[in-house]
Simulated assay, not measured.
Amino acid sequence: MIGKKVLETEPVPTAEVKEILEGFAAEHDLTYEQNLTLDHVIKFSKLELEDSNKLIGELEELLKKKYAVRITDMLPEDLADLRLLFAKERIPIKNEDMEQILKIVDKYRTE
């Protein structure tokens, strides 16, 4: 059987996807799907790559990386928004931790 096997997966923030696709677009023609993805990350990426990585690093002290990346991409503004990100997850997060997460995210908000 000929096929591809996924060896490893790692969540990456939208800022990193934006950097990767912009670098690739400078050298090659993008496919339709890649163009759609680039347009999406340009519109919805809220932080620069450096700030995004710093925020993920701070959030990883409290959460797993996949949750830190999700919070970095969304930048929730209040507890309700943060709870929505974890609505389908089975991880217990205390209200004190959620408030601390929001304080960390507020430091990086550029609005």
Rank of each mutant, 00 (worst) to 15 (best):
Leu36Ala: 14
Tyr108Thr: 05
Asp51Thr: 06
Met98Arg: 00
Val6Ser: 03
Glu10Asp: 02
Asp39Gln: 15
Ile20Pro: 01
Leu7Cys: 10
Leu62Tyr: 10
Arg90Thr: 08
Phe24Val: 10
Lys18Ser: 01
Ala68Ile: 12
Lys65Ala: 08
Lys66Trp: 01
Glu60Lys: 06
Leu85Trp: 11
Ile93Arg: 14
Leu30Thr: 08
Lys54Pro: 03
Glu77Arg: 15
Glu27Gly: 02
Val17Thr: 01
Asp97Glu: 06
Ile56Leu: 08
Arg90Trp: 08
Glu111Ser: 13
Ser52Tyr: 08
Leu84Pro: 08
Ile20Arg: 11
Ala68Leu: 08
Phe24Pro: 00
Lys94Met: 03
Thr14Val: 14
Lys103Tyr: 07
Leu84Phe: 15
Phe86Pro: 09
Glu89Gly: 07
Ile104Glu: 11
Arg90Asn: 15
Ala25Val: 01
Ile91Leu: 14
Ile101Ser: 01
Leu47Glu: 01
Glu19Arg: 09
Glu19Ala: 11
Arg83Ile: 02
Lys94Thr: 14
Val12Glu: 15
Val69Trp: 07
Leu30Arg: 08
Pro92Ile: 11
Leu55Val: 13
Leu102Asp: 00
Thr110Val: 09
Lys18Asn: 00
Val6Asn: 01
Phe44His: 14
Glu16Tyr: 07
Ala15Phe: 03
Tyr32Pro: 01
Leu47Thr: 05
Thr9Lys: 11
Lys46His: 00
Thr9Ile: 15
Tyr32Glu: 15
Gly3Pro: 14
Ile56Thr: 08
Val105Ala: 04
Met1Cys: 09
Val17Asn: 01
Asp73Met: 07
Val69Pro: 04
Thr9Ser: 11
Pro13Gly: 10
Lys5Arg: 13
Val41His: 04
Asn53Gly: 00
Thr14Lys: 10
Asp73Ala: 05
Glu22His: 00
Ala68Trp: 11
Asp29Ala: 07
Asp78Gln: 12
Leu38His: 06
Met74Pro: 07
Glu99Asn: 13
Glu96His: 03
Pro92Tyr: 15
Lys46Phe: 00
Thr72Phe: 10
Gln100Ile: 09
Leu59Phe: 04
